[in-house]
Design a protein around this nucleic acid. Structure first.
Ligand SMILES: [Mn+2]
Ligand SMILES: [Mn+2]
Ligand SMILES: [Zn+2]
Ligand SMILES: [Zn+2]
Lengths: 134, 134
DNA sequence: CATCTTATTGCAACAAATTTGCAATAAGAA
DNA sequence: TTCTTATTGCAAATTTGTTGCAATAAGATG
């Protein structure tokens, strides 16, 4: 995956720097999606400003995607860097269950082509109460 | 719908006030989801603080739901006040296409029960390029 | 309609989150 | 190693969201 990063950056004038590496690693090592400030505290070298700038860059390059986490926004690695999946999220205890569903992926394509849309990304999330909290 | 609001508020000590009415109307008249600050600027009387407080209240009462819009968070009326739907959103021109899909609704229930989840809410969004921008 | 209770508001003051300008730094090409 | 310039860190400015509290006004009551 480190190699993939290089490939993406190599093409046009983008540089693989220390902050970018660190932020990527933080995201990579995390199970759950992280907020900007969580990423910031997990970074020992990268500056707060760099976190924001890097997140925006990563998002533009589709390296990460933002997911709605409760009332706020969090980030996690996107498709090429993590197996594509969606979330069931418990609004009570915060528990996150990863979900893979061919049906959804299929539906995305069907719906998109029906609307003459070129898909670059999609989100699907179920919120509710988990087994333990119901 | 104004009547529905009353019904909800009447039950327990909640009052229908000017700011609340205004914010509800702003949301109601908007095609696309709005951010807190957009709502704020659309309100002539309601104060910024009231916007936040009302948004939280409305959310607690399931009058609105928050949707992921591009990079940030926005709000729109929820099911009883607007027909349940999802979005195809063009990352180029910002165009939003409403989508209703029985398949998705069905899938939500199937997946949830498979995971012993009680669904309270769900989101589905397709991002990409619209007909005009592709 | 006048009165009374108290939920709700606006405002000012805070606190947190995000953005911006710019000189110093360091990728990475040559 | 040298050179170009993308990127960083830092400080300052904005923007966004929160909190305490006295003033206001729903709406219940008579
Ligand atoms: Mn996940
Ligand atoms: Mn819509
Ligand atoms: Zn739970
Ligand atoms: Zn478009």
């Amino acid at each position: 995956m480190e190699k993939e990063l290089e490939t993406i950056f190599a093409q046009q004038k983008l540089r693989i720097t220390r902050p970018r590496r660190e932020i990527f690693r933080v995201l990579q090592q995390s199970q759950a999606p992280l907020s900007a400030s969580m990423i910031n505290t997990h970074c020992t070298t990268a500056d707060r400003t760099s976190v924001y700038r890097t997140l925006e860059l990563f998002h533009r390059l589709s390296i990460i995607k933002s997911v709605q986490f409760g009332w706020r926004q969090r980030y996690e690695l996107a498709d090429p860097f993590k197996i594509h999946h969606h979330h069931l999220s418990c609004t009570q205890c915060g528990r996150l269950i990863d979900l893979q569903s061919p049906e959804i992926e299929n539906l995305v394509n069907v719906v998109a082509s029906q609307n003459n849309f070129v898909v670059t990304d999609h989100t699907f999330e179920i919120r509710g109460l988990c087994q333990d909290c119901r």
